[in-house]
Computed example of a mutant assay.
Amino acid sequence: MPKAAASTKCKTEPQPKFPSSLPTWADDTELVGLVFELEPTTSTSLYSQYTIGLHAWFLDQVRQLNPELSAYLHDGESEKPFNISALSGQLLASGRQLQLEAKQIYRWHVNALSPRVLQFLKQWLTELPQILDLRDAPLQIKQVSIAHPSATYAQLLQLSPEKPSNVNFSFVSPTSFRRKGHHFPLPVPVNLFHSYLRRWNDFSGMPIEPEPFLDWIDEGVIIHQHHLESMKVAAGKRGSVTGFTGVMSCGLSKPALANSEFTQLFYALARLAPYCGTGHKTTFGLGQTRLDWVEPEVSSPIQVLTNLLGERIDELTALFTAQRKRTGGDRTDKIASTWATILARREMGESLQVISQDLEMPYATVKTYVKLARRMLRTLTL
Rank of each mutant, 00 (worst) to 15 (best):
K3L: 02
A4Y: 06
A4I: 00
K11L: 15
E13R: 15
P16Q: 14
K17R: 15
S20P: 01
P23Y: 08
W25F: 11
T29N: 09
T29L: 05
F36G: 05
L38I: 12
L38Q: 13
L38A: 13
T42V: 12
T42K: 15
T44I: 14
S48N: 06
S48E: 02
I52Q: 12
G53T: 13
G53E: 08
V62N: 03
V62G: 03
V62D: 04
V62T: 08
Q64L: 14
E68M: 04
L69W: 06
Y72T: 12
H74A: 05
K80C: 03
S85M: 07
Q90W: 01
Q90T: 04
R96P: 00
R96C: 00
Q97I: 00
Q99Y: 05
Q99K: 10
A102L: 06
H109A: 01
V110D: 09
N111I: 00
N111A: 10
S114D: 15
Q119K: 12
Q119A: 10
F120K: 03
L125N: 09
T126M: 12
T126E: 15
L128K: 05
I131L: 15
D133M: 13
L134T: 09
K142H: 11
K142D: 05
T152Y: 11
Y153P: 05
L157K: 11
E162G: 12
N166W: 11
F171S: 01
S173V: 01
P174I: 00
V190M: 11
L192F: 04
Y196R: 03
D202I: 00
G205V: 07
M206A: 14
I208P: 02
P210Y: 08
P210I: 04
P212A: 09
W216G: 07
D218L: 07
V221D: 07
V221Y: 07
Q225P: 04
H227L: 13
M231T: 09
A235R: 13
G236K: 04
G239W: 11
G239T: 07
S240E: 14
V241M: 15
V241C: 13
G246S: 10
V247L: 07
C250Y: 08
N259F: 01
E261G: 00
Q264E: 13
F266T: 02
A270E: 08
R271E: 09
P274Q: 06
C276I: 01
G277V: 01
H280G: 03
T282P: 05
T282A: 09
T282E: 04
T283G: 02
G287V: 02
Q288I: 04
T289H: 06
E295M: 08
E295K: 14
V304M: 08
L309M: 09
L316T: 02
L316S: 04
A318N: 10
L319S: 04
L319P: 00
Q323W: 13
R326A: 08
D330W: 09
A336E: 08
W339A: 03
I342L: 10
A344C: 05
R346K: 10
I355R: 05
S356H: 09
K367Y: 06
Y369H: 10
V370T: 13
R374S: 11
L377P: 01
